[in-house]
């Protein structure tokens, strides 16, 4: 029984870490090399890694979605591909509806290896090549150089708020364990 509890606890920890790692914004310093739209087949098995249908996505009659993409190159030469989709009013709660503007910004900051413009792309999600999933770009800001890595304040603030909430819920649970609902039963204590 003890080992079952340990295994369940470890799996739960991995699940929470994965959820946070997928959902929280991450920042990478890259160079934008190309921006384009591509008709994309989205299999139902991977649809959670793409924008929800309610966020004004455009599809053709064959069910292929028109998705904006941003190609990028990291300072070490490895390439990286972002998608650029509105998230709408659903999970994850980014409430993004300016993907057209973002695409225009990315196109404006396009550069080649000889004369690079380094930018910090904020995005959430995972690049899983075997599932064809791409992180969703949220913001693009120019930075001083390839070694400039701005602090990820948004993720820190969210983590801080989540920790504070967890501490509050833990305190509330401790108080309930300690005293139950005793002052809500009239007269008796």
């Amino acid at each position: 029984m003890y080992y079952v509890r340990v295994v369940i606890g470890v799996l739960f920890g991995i699940l929470v870490f994965g959820l946070l790692d997928y959902t929280l914004p991450s920042q990478n310093t890259v160079r934008v090399s190309n921006t384009y739209n591509r008709l994309t087949e989205i299999p139902p098995s991977a649809s959670i890694f793409w924008a929800a249908d309610s966020s004004r996505v455009v599809e053709n009659a064959q069910g292929q979605r028109d998705v904006r993409f941003i190609d990028a190159v990291r300072p070490n030469g490895n390439v990286f591909v972002y998608r650029n989709e509105d998230t709408g009013w659903v999970w994850p709660p980014y409430f993004k509806y300016d993907s057209a503007n973002l695409q225009a910004e990315a196109t404006n900051l396009r550069s080649d290896a000889r004369d690079p413009i380094w930018v910090s792309v904020t995005a959430y999600g995972w690049r899983l090549a075997w599932l064809s999933t791409y992180p969703n770009a949220i913001a693009i800001n120019t930075v001083a150089g390839p070694d400039d890595r701005p602090a990820n304040w948004a993720a820190m603030i969210v983590c801080g708020v989540l920790l504070a909430l967890l501490a509050l819920i833990w305190r509330m649970w401790a108080q309930f364990r300690d005293r139950g609902l005793r002052n809500f039963r009239k007269g008796k204590a």
Partner: peptide, 20 residues
């Protein structure tokens, strides 16, 4: 190929109300 459409399943306003 020219028949584009906005996907109708779950409109934008419905998503906002559901969030709220």
């Amino acid at each position: 190929m020219l028949s584009w459409r906005l996907v109708a399943t779950g409109a934008w306003g419905v998503a906002l109300i559901r969030l709220w």
